[in-house]
Measured scan of single mutants.
Amino acid sequence: DIIVVALYDYEAIHHEDLSFQKGDQMVVLEESGEWWKARSLATRKEGYIPSNYVARVDS
């Protein structure tokens, strides 16, 4: 799995977006363009995230 960590807070604009806080970790489910589908490890919610707001966690 690709794990990313939030670099900034993000408040969902559309209902399919995923809100998150700086430091939150998410599993990337699908990478396509600038918006990635991800699942929050904390809340288990899924939605689209702006890929420029996150960084990959080296395992």
Rank of each mutant, 00 (worst) to 15 (best):
D1P: 15
D1W: 15
D1H: 14
I2L: 11
I2Q: 10
I2F: 15
I3K: 06
I3C: 06
I3H: 06
V4D: 00
V4T: 01
V4P: 00
V5R: 06
A6T: 02
A6P: 00
A6I: 01
A6E: 00
A6N: 00
A6H: 01
L7N: 03
L7A: 02
L7H: 03
Y8T: 06
Y8A: 09
Y8H: 08
D9I: 04
Y10N: 02
Y10G: 01
E11A: 12
E11K: 13
E11C: 12
A12D: 02
A12N: 04
A12G: 11
A12S: 09
I13G: 08
I13R: 14
I13M: 11
I13Q: 13
H14D: 09
H14G: 14
H14Y: 10
H14Q: 07
H14W: 10
H15C: 12
H15F: 12
H15A: 14
H15W: 11
H15I: 13
E16M: 12
E16G: 15
E16Q: 12
E16F: 14
D17K: 09
D17V: 09
D17C: 14
D17Q: 15
D17E: 15
D17Y: 15
L18E: 00
L18F: 06
L18C: 02
S19R: 05
S19C: 07
S19M: 04
F20A: 01
F20N: 00
F20H: 01
F20M: 04
F20P: 00
Q21D: 06
Q21A: 11
Q21N: 12
Q21T: 11
Q21H: 13
K22G: 03
K22V: 09
K22E: 08
K22A: 10
G23A: 03
G23T: 03
G23L: 02
G23W: 05
G23M: 03
G23I: 00
Q25M: 15
M26N: 00
M26H: 02
M26P: 01
M26I: 06
M26C: 02
M26G: 01
V27D: 02
V27Y: 09
V28C: 05
V28S: 01
V28W: 02
L29C: 06
L29G: 02
L29M: 08
L29Q: 04
E30L: 09
E30G: 08
E30D: 13
E30T: 09
E31Y: 14
E31N: 14
E31I: 14
E31A: 15
E31F: 15
E31V: 13
E31L: 14
S32C: 15
S32E: 12
S32G: 14
S32T: 12
S32V: 12
S32L: 13
G33D: 06
G33I: 04
G33E: 05
E34W: 13
E34H: 14
E34R: 12
E34S: 12
E34Q: 12
E34T: 13
W35I: 09
W35G: 04
W35H: 08
W35Y: 12
W36L: 14
W36G: 01
W36N: 03
W36R: 03
W36S: 06
K37M: 13
K37S: 06
K37I: 10
K37G: 02
A38P: 01
A38Y: 02
A38N: 01
A38I: 06
R39C: 10
R39D: 02
R39V: 11
S40N: 13
S40I: 12
S40G: 04
S40Q: 10
S40A: 10
S40D: 09
L41C: 13
L41G: 03
L41Y: 07
L41V: 10
A42N: 11
A42E: 12
A42H: 10
T43A: 04
T43P: 02
R44I: 07
R44H: 15
R44Q: 14
K45P: 00
K45G: 07
K45F: 07
K45Y: 06
E46L: 08
E46P: 02
E46Q: 09
E46V: 14
G47E: 02
G47W: 03
Y48P: 00
Y48Q: 07
Y48L: 10
Y48R: 12
Y48M: 14
I49L: 04
I49R: 00
I49Y: 00
I49F: 05
I49Q: 01
P50F: 06
P50L: 07
P50V: 02
S51M: 11
S51F: 09
S51V: 07
S51A: 13
S51I: 08
N52I: 09
N52Y: 10
N52T: 12
Y53D: 01
Y53A: 09
Y53I: 06
Y53P: 00
Y53N: 03
Y53M: 12
Y53S: 09
V54D: 00
V54E: 02
V54Q: 00
V54P: 01
V54K: 02
A55W: 08
A55V: 14
A55L: 10
A55T: 12
A55R: 12
R56W: 08
R56K: 13
R56L: 11
R56P: 09
V57D: 07
V57Q: 08
V57M: 11
V57H: 07
V57R: 07
D58L: 11
S59M: 14
